[in-house]
Write a protein that binds this DNA or RNA. Sequence first.
DNA 1: TCACTTCTATACCGACCGGTATGGCAAACA
DNA 2: TGTTTGCCATACCGGTCGGTATAGAAGTGA
Lengths: 184, 184
Amino acid sequence: MTDAPAPARRGTARERLLVAAGELFYSEGINTSGVEAIAARAGVTKATLYNNFRSKDQLVAEYLRGRLESSRRNRARFDDPAQAPAGRVAAFFEEVEHAIANGTFHGCPYSKAAVEVPGNAEAMVVVQEHYADVIAHFTDVTGDRTTAETIAMIYDGGMLAAKASGTAEPMARAKAAALRLIAS
Amino acid sequence: MTDAPAPARRGTARERLLVAAGELFYSEGINTSGVEAIAARAGVTKATLYNNFRSKDQLVAEYLRGRLESSRRNRARFDDPAQAPAGRVAAFFEEVEHAIANGTFHGCPYSKAAVEVPGNAEAMVVVQEHYADVIAHFTDVTGDRTTAETIAMIYDGGMLAAKASGTAEPMARAKAAALRLIAS
DNA sequence: TCACTTCTATACCGACCGGTATGGCAAACA
DNA sequence: TGTTTGCCATACCGGTCGGTATAGAAGTGA
């Protein structure tokens, strides 16, 4: 609605572009966010954007890859394989619950991207990597791949319902369902 | 990619437009499908489209409403309240499994629309109606609203995973998880 | 000092978008 | 019969899209 608000002015132009693109893509949508608006938000011109990225498609892919690697780093840092499976699964769901509480949750970035970009886009590679990551993680936690895939479905469905309802309650219910599943 | 293929030529212009819009919106995406392409597919010109619909937004809303009411009719016709809950839940999931087998499944139309359309669009009303319908149905079947909401999450997550994988297998797993839930 | 890189600013491109206007033709209906 | 209604075709509107071209300013390192 309003003009681009105060952008982050730290870091290289490329970094600022990725930050700005991430904010706009995630909260306003990928197709809805024009390259001009992204550049403006980064305090940069369109020419600079195209000095740093081959195309908008590549920018989308790198934005998603940034999220993916950030998730991997968080998992490496905070997930404790020595902990009981229930706690590890709960932590995974609670990350989303916290994002909702913070008001920073706008749905699963990957499932949103899968709807917004064409199937042959660079970004879709990252989307597939994400799904593989999640299933691998739950497989590692529960020791069973079928269980892991079921939990992943509950996880994605929970995010969808949370987004639709605007509350964190569906995510809590999703967590409960997942915990019930691994308890049996 | 190619030109508009052979359109259905039965019915009024309005009906053909709704069919064409439905096919394009669902398989190619809402934002990706221009009004000109929809009109061409219906064997009609853009002027006729705007004689029958106020705006593209209204066309999207009526397309979704058509799907919603078709679902309601199917449920009224084929769902048997005398049957056991397990069978009724299974039938609900199997509808999607059949669509996947037919190659006519391209993800949940409502969750896709929710991503593609702005939050204040007419179409979002129909999306909310759909979610309420699903939860009401599962509540009717299971007798418990919390269980119903969990099943609905599994259902949505299953469709997401089915779309991502391109196979019907996640949907079968979702069905199994839902049945396990109501068995306890 | 000079060359190189990276940024800025601006102007432009062709394509497509949703939407409107006009005018004519054909069938349905009085 | 005359009139209305629905559809046709075409041409156009302003706006935005992703992407390119060009020329100059600023900082850097040799």
